[in-house]
């Protein structure tokens, strides 16, 4: 085990175009009133204009509080949801409004790992059926049968291949998450969206799963979109990190620059709120306490959405929406008063 302290983000291979390109992505969930004659009375703007790209072999971390739209974003780029606006280009295909049938061949290349290892596995199916499902659905021929392929996958994620005929309830949380990972890996996808893959796990098991994801990325040249609310886990696994607030990206940059020189006040608040496991350091740290809760996405504040909780807010923040501008190479911030601050 080498614990080299390389804090330089690996530069992703410069392919001609990014694997995933998202522009102005929007998803509004309509709010209806009435039982028979329904009329739309508003919309939850879960995702409201996201623009980012993910290069091949790279890991993009996405952080934010509950309700900021990070999971919705994950479901949009895997096309489990239909976007309201914007475009998603995956590997050269515009998948924004593809039908289910058109999407199916592409599903081989885009997979998702879900947060809750308890509800994402069918309790009535054996592990063999669950992990073998992608082969059957995509009608993929395997060299020596589906069973062999599944057992290889189980071995790959650190499970015993003899567990082929067991049911999900016979496994612990960490093992179930490995089953979910095996299923996502079955067809050798290009992009895996990890939606809070470790938040339901114990600390010691979290580290095992994170290491596994790391190894698999090296082995199969995977690209991850890693959604999580734990900032330290995201720092560990990501090459670039996007911070979301109420459906928008407020700051995006490579890992080193975002964690060491964060510029958006919201990022400052998030980073300062993470407790560090060191009593002396912890007692000396400055802490930015945000007041109140995240406003409702049904009726988000105008202009800069963070102005209701921001200690730097001035008149302009309530009138003009700050665009996401590049302030340093590879580091974009959407704030009228960006300021570098060292918090980590």
């Amino acid at each position: 085990m080498t614990a080299t302290t390389s804090d330089v983000a690996a530069t992703p291979a410069d392919d001609a175009r990014p694997l995933l390109q998202v522009e102005g992505l929007q998803k509004y969930f309509p709010v209806n009133r009435g039982i028979i004659f329904q009329k739309e009375v508003g919309a939850v703007k879960a995702v409201d204009g996201l623009t980012f790209s993910v290069a091949k072999g790279e890991t993009l971390g996405v952080v934010g509080e509950t309700g900021c739209g990070k999971s919705t974003m994950g479901r949009l780029i895997t096309r489990l949801l239909e976007p309201t606006g914007g475009s998603i280009v995956f590997n050269g295909h515009d998948i924004t409004h593809m039908s289910r049938g058109q999407m199916r061949p592409l599903r081989k290349d885009v997979q998702i790992i879900f947060q809750d290892p308890y509800s994402s596995l069918n309790p009535r199916h054996t592990i063999g059926t669950i992990v073998g499902a992608p082969f059957r659905l995509q009608k993929v021929q395997t060299e020596s049968g589906v069973k062999k392929a599944v057992q290889d996958l189980l071995a790959l994620v650190g499970l015993n291949p003899e567990h082929y005929n067991r049911y999900p309830h016979e496994f612990s949380g960490g093992q179930r998450q490995r089953i979910g990972i095996a299923r996502a890996l079955a067809l050798r996808p290009k992009l895996i969206v990890c939606d809070e893959p470790v938040s339901a796990l114990d600390v010691s098991i979290q580290a095992q799963v994170i290491n596994l994801l790391d190894d698999l990325q090296d082995e199969f040249d995977l690209t991850y979109v890693f959604i999580a609310h734990d900032l330290s886990v995201v720092r560990h696994i990501s090459d670039r990190v996007a911070v979301m607030y109420l459906g928008k990206i407020v700051e995006i940059g490579d890992r080193v620059s975002l964690y060491e020189h964060p510029m958006h006040p919201y990022t400052h608040a998030l980073l300062s709120a993470v407790p560090v496991p060191d009593p002396v350091k912890e007692s000396k740290r400055e802490r930015i306490l945000l007041t109140g809760d995240v406003p409702s996405p049904l009726n988000p504040p105008p202009a800069c959405r963070f102005h209701t909780r921001c200690w730097k807010a001035q008149a302009i923040c309530k009138q003009v929406e700050p665009p996401l501008v590049q302030l340093q190479p590879g580091h974009e911030v959407a704030c009228h008063f960006p300021e570098e601050r060292v918090l980590v």
Binding site: M1, T2, T4, S6, I210, S232, H236, R255, V276
Partner: peptide, 12 residues
């Protein structure tokens, strides 16, 4: 085994 913000990032 915990990932921590107050230390340099390790590879594993």
């Amino acid at each position: 085994s915990v990932t921590r913000l107050d230390r340099l990032r390790t590879d594993r």
